[in-house]
Design a protein around this nucleic acid. Structure first.
Lengths: 339, 339
DNA sequence: ATGAAAGCGCTAACAT
DNA sequence: ATGTTAGCGCTTTCAT
């Protein structure tokens, strides 16, 4: 590919004037500028990033370490949000799919160091505490946070998510909900449980004893306990058994659809169902479609990139972004199910 | 970060000797080498990629354009395979999530040009023909191919996939299968239909009239027709109705589980079900689990990266890789369902 | 086995 | 408004 020297020769001008045109320096004669721009367009010149990086001593590169993020379709929005924000600010984002602590992580770190990345975003799959190895470059934690507050972070506002959902179902008249929660090691689990308890209480509903951990992780394997939990509970008489099941994530909700079918119960008619994630294609493929709280992943990605480009001064920040309710049919169509 | 000059000064040697150590040139005195390596480890030096690129006039960068690939969890394996192969060969992979023809595509192309990428892999979501805009750098098509044979490509061997599956179900005694196919615009659809017809015929089964297009795309929206197709067919007497439903993709199969439940039929007992993709978490969350043909995405990603690093000489190649059968319970546990 | 010098393409700093 | 010079960190080339 051509270089600025060649463009300068063709335009009968100096190297520096070409550089000025390319870098949008206003101090250039409009005619000269037009001549140079025409040549650039003609030969399809692109400035050489490596040369820029060397001379200017700035890489303009932000790393993005996606810790298996892409294996869940909704959290890929984290990547999209960050990428869009990077381009809007003239930054180059270098994206890696890694697994924390493995060779893929070390390789990505080495490559980012070799390119002199100015900062790095680390994105996790679940809202959780994460301790990164010490690094020479600023790190922003995305969908996770540092327990020792050494890095800024961007997370979903899980309290707000659960509060919003609880308010909606309470207003629709559900009075005997149960909550099938994520493992307690995931921060989202306690935040949501607290929000559900507090919000339900305002409607005169006591959630004590109605919250069950239904997802377990053993040796990297995920196990759902929906079957054991629901079977006895749903055997109670219609007026006493749960009228609503709130699931900690959409894949658990999918499991619950099958468990309920086994019990001869119909989602949306015999019992309401709601969840967290809006994980496609599952959420809209289930019948009836799953009403769920969508996590604000795109906005979180954008926010993290802005923090990476210009880290806020002062104390370490934890930015919490709100999610929104996605309505499908799993809460029932018309009046509340409860009598 | 430090540079080779500083290392040379500290080691009381010349710049060039440091460079030799870093680039594994054998012509260095072992003691000098040890001294220099100790210093490198101590200060955590990483060679400056930009400087290397400039001087050597080689970027060592391969671009990877993932066209919404990450939005399906299984095809992220394409990325993993390519990334692993790149690192094994000392190449840097630059990964982008794009949508073909949009601003995201142009931005990624510009960034790759600015970094002087040596070749580019373009990965599509479905095995299909794709025409890329002309480019100055070699392109490898992944999970798609150029109808005018201008680029090498790597695709799944959809004929083999369908042949393998058909053989398995025939050997288990299924004799009245139907095939719910993908849209005819997707190449996989005709390859699989042809393989199913030819393989079933060897077992004395005529598939004429038993293949239905069940997935339609209108204005970017996907619509399944499983309900309209299955309702009349499954109403036939037990000995005449289909004993097996083969689905063109796992999400369609998921839809079929719900349609069958509506019809009062039980997967694995009343009718067998098999599919293509092995899309997690869907395939293993369905009850009973979905038996499906896994597409060879990881190997395809590796193969594409090898082609990108060293394009095969001679005519344009289309590399077809085989998939394998993943058994769960949707074909039934014991004897064939057919009597 | 080691070193000196040149230069990749660009922009910062300093003229004119 | 335009041009000249120097140098970013590295590897290539050519000496020793």
């Amino acid at each position: 590919m051509a270089n600025q020297r060649e463009i300068a020769d063709r335009a009968k001008t100096s190297l520096k004037t070409v550089s000025r045109v390319i870098n949008q320096d206003p101090l250039v004669n409009p005619q000269t500028r037009a001549r140079i721009e025409a040549i650039i367009a003609e030969i399809g010149y692109e400035p050489h990033q490596a040369a820029r990086m060397m001379r200017s001593q700035r890489s303009n590169i932000i790393g993005f370490l996606a810790d298996r993020v892409a294996t869940t379709s909704s959290s890929i929005e984290l990547v999209r949000g960050a990428q869009d924000a990077a381009w809007e600010h003239g930054k180059q984002m270098m994206l890696f799919n890694i697994e924390r602590g493995t060779q893929s992580h070390r390789n990505a770190d080495a490559q980012l160091a070799a390119f002199r990345a100015e900062s790095v975003i680390y994105a996790a799959r679940f809202h959780q505490p994460v301790t990164l190895p010490p690094a020479s470059v600023p790190h922003i934690l995305l969908n996770c946070f540092d327990p020792k507050s050494r890095h800024h972070s961007v997370v979903p506002d899980d309290y707000q998510l659960a509060e919003t959902l609880t308010k909606i179902v309470m207003e629709r008249g559900f009075r005997r909900p149960i909550f099938l929660n994520l493992p307690e090691t995931i921060v989202a689990a306690e935040l949501r449980a607290a929000a559900i308890v507090a919000t339900a209480r305002k409607f005169g509903v006591d959630m004590t004893g109605r919250i069950h951990t239904a997802v377990f992780e053993q040796r990297g394997e995920v196990r759902f306990a929906a079957d054991e939990i629901l079977r006895p509970l749903m055997a109670a008489p219609v007026g006493e058994r749960p009228d609503l099941i709130i699931c900690g994530q959409d894949v658990l909700a999918m499991n619950v659809y099958f468990v309920l079918a086994d019990l001869g119960l119909s989602v949306g008619r015999d019992v309401g169902l709601a969840s967290f994630d809006n994980l496609e294609p599952i959420a809209s493929l289930l019948r009836p479609g799953l009403s769920t709280m969508q996590l604000p992943y795109y906005e979180m990605g954008r926010a993290a990139m802005l923090m990476a480009i210009e880290p806020p001064p002062g104390p370490v920040q934890v930015l919490e972004l709100p999610g929104r309710f996605i309505e499908r049919q799993s809460l029932g169509q018309q009046s509340p199910l409860t009598t």
